[in-house]
Computed example of a mutant assay.
Amino acid sequence: MAETFVLVHGAWHGAWCWGAVINQLEKLGDHAYAVDLPGHGMNRADRSKVTLESYVDSVAEFIERQDLKNVVLAGHSLGGLTIPGVAAKIPARIKRVVWVTALVALDGQPIVDPATSPLAALAESQPEKSIPIEMMGKEFLDGLSNDMAPAVKEYVLSAVGPQPIGPMIAAVPMAPYFATGIPSSYLVCEDDKTPVAGAPNWHPHFSSRLKNPTLKFVKSGHEVMFTHPVECARALHELARGE
């Protein structure tokens, strides 16, 4: 039976980043869609007004508009903040939620403290309260692209757009998602070197915050959609089937 995937991008990215993975999922006989979150890609929302709630609403509304059912909802990186809200909003349409080397928040807490984080202060000084990826610094960019060919890195960095701070400083409600009982999975990218405050490793630091998640491991850095799309799609396909 074909699986139905809705793929949510992370910070700075857009639906475009999932192109190769969608192609591979379709080769496996599945259906896959990617959504531009507000302020990203072709979604021209005012970045200064973008919130985590608007992220959640945009994905939920897409799923409802397309009348999708038994959806495997997958989020990469910062997309991990959006997907639990979507699942809690429309649980009857969601089969499984997959964090793809993604952030998992603690219930009621933001990923970035708006009062103390230099990132929040930096965003406030920028147009549209958004941060260009270049301002994240060399250590972050090197970690993000540690296994990317130079040409791929150049393409990705040329395609990304500024990241609104709103969703990053929002309290993330996890309890409503856990209350749904929808199964969780975590796709571990074993070579992910992207630095995150308080997280020496994305797994198990973030994956351990989920309740009994199934795990799949891919030998990849953070940008798995570009460097290992075949393996990423295969892992998502297997997770969708409970394998």
Rank of each mutant, 00 (worst) to 15 (best):
V104Y: 05
A240V: 07
D191A: 13
N70E: 15
M174T: 13
M1D: 07
L37F: 02
I22P: 01
A233R: 03
L78N: 09
V98C: 14
S158P: 03
K49V: 04
K69M: 08
R93A: 13
I63P: 01
K211S: 06
L81H: 04
P176M: 08
H237A: 10
L78F: 14
R209N: 03
G137S: 05
V71L: 03
A149P: 00
T214A: 15
R209C: 02
D147C: 06
P38M: 11
A102N: 08
N43V: 00
T116N: 14
S77N: 07
P213M: 08
V188P: 01
C189W: 04
L68N: 02
G79R: 07
P204C: 08
L210Q: 05
Y33W: 15
T4M: 00
V104D: 05
K69D: 13
F178T: 12
T82P: 00
H203M: 08
N43F: 00
E128H: 13
G85T: 00
N23Y: 12
I111D: 04
G39L: 11
L119R: 12
H9M: 04
Q66L: 12
H205N: 15
E139G: 01
W18K: 09
A74H: 06
P91F: 06
R96Y: 02
A151S: 13
H13Q: 14
G19Q: 13
A32V: 04
T227M: 09
P118Q: 10
K138W: 02
V50M: 06
L144D: 03
L141D: 05
Q24V: 10
A60M: 06
H76A: 06
E61L: 12
V112G: 04
G14F: 07
L7N: 09
M135F: 11
F178G: 00
A32C: 03
L106P: 00
L144H: 00
S184Q: 10
L81M: 13
K27G: 15
S130Y: 02
F217V: 05
A105P: 09
A74I: 02
V188I: 15
E190F: 06
K129S: 12
A171I: 01
D36Q: 10
K69P: 00
S208P: 03
A74V: 00
C232E: 12
V172S: 01
S208D: 15
K211P: 00
V188T: 07
